[in-house]
Amino acid sequence: MRLLVFGQTGQVARELQRLAPEARFLSRAEADLSDPQACAAAIRDCDAVINAAAWTAVDKAETEEDTATVINGASPGAMARACAAQGLPFLHISTDYVFDGQGTEPFQTTDPVAPLNAYGRSKLAGEQAVLESGANALILRTSWVVSAHGANFVKTMLRLGRERESLNVVADQVGGPTPAAAIAEALLTAARAMAQGAKGGVHHFAGSPDTSWADFAREIMAQAGLPCQINDIPSSAYPTPARRPSNSRLDCSAFTAAFGIPRPDWRAHLTQIIKDLT
Rank of each mutant, 00 (worst) to 15 (best):
T104D: 15
G7L: 09
G73D: 03
T95H: 08
T271A: 15
N72W: 05
G207Y: 09
A125C: 10
Q173S: 08
A181K: 04
A85N: 09
V49E: 04
A186I: 01
Q173R: 10
A193S: 12
V49I: 05
P234Q: 10
Q229S: 12
V58A: 04
L187N: 03
Q17W: 06
S143C: 13
F6S: 12
A148D: 14
E15P: 01
G120D: 02
G200T: 04
A29S: 13
K199P: 00
A182Q: 02
C46D: 08
D172S: 08
A190H: 00
A214C: 11
A184I: 01
P21M: 06
P36C: 13
R244K: 14
K275N: 10
T109D: 08
A217I: 07
N231F: 10
E64T: 13
C46Y: 10
L88I: 09
A84Q: 11
E185Q: 14
Q86G: 12
D35G: 00
N117K: 06
D210K: 02
T9I: 04
D251W: 07
A217P: 07
R159H: 13
T109H: 01
A20Y: 07
D96H: 09
K60C: 03
N231W: 05
S94A: 14
A61H: 05
Q17K: 15
E105Q: 14
G103S: 07
D215I: 00
D210I: 01
S147V: 07
A31V: 04
F6P: 07
A258C: 04
E185C: 00
A82E: 02
E30A: 15
A80K: 07
S34I: 02
A198M: 04
E219V: 12
A129S: 11
N136I: 10
Q229G: 01
D32E: 14
A237F: 03
E62V: 05
A42R: 06
A129C: 04
C46R: 08
T67L: 13
L226I: 14
D232E: 14
D100E: 12
W266P: 04
M194C: 04
I261K: 06
A61Q: 07
S147T: 10
C46K: 07
I43S: 09
